[in-house]
Design a binder for these strands. Structure first.
Lengths: 336, 336
DNA sequence: AATTGTTACGCATACGTATTCAAGCGCGGT
DNA sequence: ACCGCGCTTGAATACGTATGCGTAACAATT
């Protein structure tokens, strides 16, 4: 398609002509470590500014075969923690000279389309921001030699860098707190079944309880949503003995539990104690005061980006996994 | 920097050689409307698949001077509505053959950096996703002829396309509901002062109240946060007569109001009625049941993207503004 | 003054694709 | 048999930049 505007784009040649130097000099003027005398560099930059010249990153990408694109693919979720992560990761990438190509992954069918874009735009690294999707993107990216970072998702056959919380130690902290506070019966409200976080948390919870001599915790299937937490309480109430410690695979369900408990005139924290994951901003609100296991999201974002860049720089590097400790934020929901 | 991997990148020439055609034929094979016999096209695509060839979008951009990038700049906020908007807009763009370059705008100093990236990567259109930042990006983009879409933010000198809710009619609906339900005194909890949404809502509320013969509503300054809403109630309680209808510039503050009211043993909706904006997902939770003015975010995202693309296609087009009606979601917080 | 070492800079080319132009081809109409 | 037309295709070029290589300029050393 032809240019519809009459404006001519200003190239390094235009600057060169006006500055009385060669095009290469202009190019070097914009590459800090290129050999060029301070004097001419200053002159060129001056002329460039007057002309309103901006280097064309696309052309640069073509010749250097470095696009400086990082693809971020985020799954559908309304858990605010993923938005937090997105923000933290993006800010981290913005500190470098890389750009974020952002993709929203809806139902599975869209994955092929996203993959196509990632390949065609020669994205140098991919960050996966969801806990419960297939690992197809990881697979295909690896096939093409594109380094991958998975946040919040464990892979056994991981050909990807992985940054996630230490769920096992997290649930241990939760169990210990429950026991220390005198809760004697236990329940787990599960998140989506194909979520690796949920799997680890559920297994860890049951295992650690067994180690503590508890063999019959109630397990209710939820789906990470507030509503599923709300409904879960009714199932728990039907079978629980009190005081009962309820661990939820995320905060949203924990908040649902609390509201349902109030509606059932179960007392928190006397009759039931609740612990969630992720420390959503709502959890600190006075009506909730939900005890939560908080991930060091900013720290994890930093590490993830760092590791991904290492993989990009050194393509022979083996993918690695980093576990981060939760911080247990004690609030009223366990304050017996 | 030289390639660190030994893998050679596969180009259209490689495909051409193996398929026994010219490079131009390969190029045409991947452009649906280019003249090429079905037979050779099929053959080329077949060979391309075998070789694992993917067209290089960067090179394509260079020659066609169409990057197919849309820049999205999102402001710092933890209002979930902006995440919703981001999702909706991104999905809409993904239906086209454009890519999203995503930027997170922190404090004002980062704007220059973001602008630099937008220009250097030859972004074809920019979407601004915040209500309370300066219009510097809009200005600079217009100078360079880049079309801009502002969501949620009105500009008087708007050289930008603008999509936002009809705040005036929204507050009118709120006032009418309050009056119909019998609230006789009124208060407004303001959002950040440099937010255009807040300005319109505040002015509209006061004006429409005056039209209804109410001249002395209480106005409390908040900052869109839950906490500021919580604190606002105390100031309102000190001066209000009951029943009092409180309009909040967003839901988060409304939720704060509700929690604070409960703590002060003020009854909702008998003593005070609360209406917020944006219908956050928390607002429908049973403990809150906050009446809210909901924006048709998906519809607005669609229109915004559509308008932006029109501006990109026809650069002579004058920027336009679109107002969308709120939907009043009545819940218990006004159910006197 | 001659030599060496160092820095500054221009020339030419390459990156991978889209597109213009012209050529080749088959085919039907006069 | 000739011309003209539509359809395919290839050759050549352009997009805007980075960079290897060679040379010129200049400083430092003998």
């Amino acid at each position: 398609m032809p240019h519809t505007t009459a404006e001519k784009t200003i190239t390094s040649r235009d600057v060169a002509r006006l500055a009385g130097v060669s095009q290469s000099a202009v190019s070097r003027a914009f590459s800090p470590n290129s050999p060029l005398s301070d004097k001419t560099r200053a002159h060129i930059l001056q002329v460039a500014r007057e002309l309103g010249y901006k280097p064309n990153a696309i052309a640069r990408s073509l010749v250097s075969s470095q696009t400086r694109f990082i693809g971020i693919v985020k799954g559908a979720t309304n858990n605010p923690m993923f938005s937090e992560l997105l923000t933290a990761i993006t800010e981290e990438i913005q500190k470098t000279n890389y750009q974020v190509l952002y993709y929203e992954s809806g139902p599975d069918q869209t994955l092929d389309d996203i993959l196509e874009r990632i390949f065609q735009y020669r994205v140098e690294g991919v960050i996966l921001l969801y806990a419960n999707l297939s690992s197809r993107i990881t697979h295909n990216c690896r096939e093409l030699g594109i380094p991958v970072l998975q946040m919040q998702r464990y892979s056994t056959n991981a050909q990807a860098n992985v940054v996630l919380p230490d769920n096992e130690r997290g649930v241990a902290m939760a169990v210990d707190l429950f026991i220390r506070k005198g809760y004697r019966s236990f329940a787990y409200v599960a998140g989506e079944m194909n979520s690796s976080s949920n799997l680890e948390r559920q297994m860890g919870f049951l295992n650690h309880l067994r180690d503590c001599g508890v063999n019959d915790p109630i397990v209710v299937q939820g789906d990470y949503s507030y509503d599923s937490g709300y409904r879960a309480l009714q199932q728990i109430a039907a079978r629980a003995s009190y005081p009962c410690g309820i661990l939820c695979a995320n905060d949203l369900m924990g908040l649902g539990i609390i509201d349902a408990a109030k509606a059932s005139s179960l007392r928190i924290p006397q009759d039931i104690g609740v612990i969630g994951f992720d420390d959503n901003f709502m959890s600190s609100w006075p009506v909730y005061q939900l005890t939560s296991l908080k991930q060091p999201t900013v720290e994890m974002a930093k590490k993830g980006v760092e590791v991904l860049f290492q993989s990009i720089t050194d393509r022979t590097l083996q993918p690695t996994m980093y576990r981060y400790d939760f911080e247990l934020i004690e609030r009223n929901s366990t304050n017996r």
